[in-house]
Amino acid sequence: HNGKLCKLKGIAPLQLGKCNITGWLLGNPECDSLLPARSWSYIVETPNSENGACYPGDLIDYEELREQLSSVSSLERFEIFPKESSWPNHTFNGVTVSCSHRGKSSFYRNLLWLTKKGDSYPKLTNSYVNNKGKEVLVLWGVHHPSSSDEQQSLYSNGNAYVSVASSNYNRRFTPEIAARPKVRDQHGRMNYYWTLLEPGDTIIFEATGNLIAPWYAFALSRGFESGIITSNASMHECNTKCQTPQGAINSNLPFQNIHPVTIGECPKYVRSTKLRMVTGLRNIPSIQYRGLFGAIAGFIEGGWTGMIDGWYGYHHQNEQGSGYAADQKSTQNAINGITNKVNSVIEKMNTQFTAVGKEFNNLEKRMENLNKKVDDGFLDIWTYNAELLVLLENERTLDFHDLNVKNLYEKVKSQLKNNAKEIGNGCFEFYHKCDNECMESVRNGTYDYPKYSEESKLNREKIDGVKLESMGVYQILAIYSTVASSLVLLVSLGAISFWMCSNGSLQCRICI
């Protein structure tokens, strides 16, 4: 991952900044910058967002509201009850120091605090018919004063009620008058409520006091790749198909172990950190130390980045220098085999997901714990399936590479015959000098055995068991695999060879 928040398929997220979902939807004055928000790819909250409900109280069923919003990608904020005409018999300019803005008392931008007009609070009834052709999110509140005197001074009615009804919602609220500790300079409380109004449905408000009335509502448009994440990451000019709280993932790998919460087309989250597919040879310690064997393909974004291909070729060293050249036929066979294998694994496992966190309130801790156990169970199954699949494929890959290298080895052996000696570690020792032209003939299969047989015969008789390297004779190393990324691999195959001279070296080696 890149540690950044990015656009998702070209669409920017909605960053709530210092506000949370509650503050944004109710219209906390400190969240005025969010009022123009219309569309987004996903919503970003920060872990310690401080601006929620400015007048103390709870947004009821907040967790369910977050779940609903996680599939919303755009909205239209509109005046559901026009301020100047909807409440002619009531005062609608209630403000509070708890919702101060720029040093002055204020109130929510989407709600109206209705109080008595003169000395009376006549029963009010108002309704709205949803003609938007889509779901409408309606929010309101109920004020709970701290004393009967406060109730009387604001609403005149000691036994007030609030009723809200639609086809799918029907509740009646009565204020709970009680002494409470002071929070944000208030002994009173406000509880906030919401409902989704279906197209064509009607919502009716009736009250004799204590109503925090809707002013603006939201017509919602769903987008199934949307979601809500909690993150401290910063926004950058970048684009992605998959976003996590820790950063964007741009990967076609089937798995990731970065974060379980994802938005967009994302690899499946697994616990494993070692889900690797081999593309090189079986481990040979001396070669492995030099980083030549054991190439791997990573299938977990965050564990290993991208696929690494092994390729086969020849390396030689003689009086004229040293050089490398790919054996294109065996390399292409290996590439085709690995590509098919990788595609097979991805096809089997690479279903892209959006995974969002589930919200539970403080009273639902047991449910949250149960949900976590269920999620953990599914996660263990996914991890096991992934590891088992790759384990089985790896064994076949190792066998496949062994065969490829063996074929190259036999190709060289059949040409050199007794003009060189096998020394048991995949290397041959020449009994004759071999210049670049000679080396090329070994690589392309045109090695002239009779041409060098007499010199080889004489050297075999002279050496008589002495280690060949100390006599200045020449080696050919018969097994060799270097490691390159897919891009470098293609470039390498396009070149005939490249040279690395070893000044004054008397050794001649050709490596497979």
Rank of each mutant, 00 (worst) to 15 (best):
V483H: 12
G377I: 11
L392T: 14
L489G: 12
K329R: 15
K413C: 13
L370F: 11
E319G: 11
I381C: 04
V405M: 11
G264Q: 10
S251H: 07
G294A: 14
K274H: 10
F400S: 10
M471P: 15
R271E: 06
I335C: 06
L379Y: 12
N350V: 08
S453C: 03
I338D: 09
K348Q: 13
Y324Q: 05
Y409A: 03
G426Y: 14
T482Q: 05
G306N: 04
E422D: 12
F378W: 07
K451Q: 09
W311K: 08
N444T: 09
K417A: 13
S502A: 13
K341P: 00
P254M: 10
P267Y: 07
Y269V: 01
F428D: 08
Y312E: 03
W382V: 06
A295G: 08
R271Y: 08
R443N: 05
I300S: 05
K406M: 12
E440H: 15
L281I: 04
A355T: 14
Q317S: 14
V442C: 07
K365D: 04
A295R: 02
F255R: 04
C238S: 05
S414V: 14
R509D: 08
K373R: 15
I512R: 02
L275T: 04
G504L: 06
T482K: 15
D399M: 09
L468G: 00
L506T: 10
K411C: 04
K274W: 01
M307H: 04
L392Q: 10
T331P: 02
G303N: 13
E347M: 11
M367E: 05
N371M: 10
H259K: 00
D448F: 08
S492K: 01
V405Y: 01
G247Y: 04
N369V: 08
Q507T: 09
S492Y: 01
N239Y: 13
N418M: 12
H432P: 09
K341W: 07
D402H: 07
F430K: 14
A334M: 06
R443A: 10
Q288V: 04
I338S: 02
N361M: 06
T446K: 08
N257D: 04
I512Q: 06
A295S: 06
N350I: 05
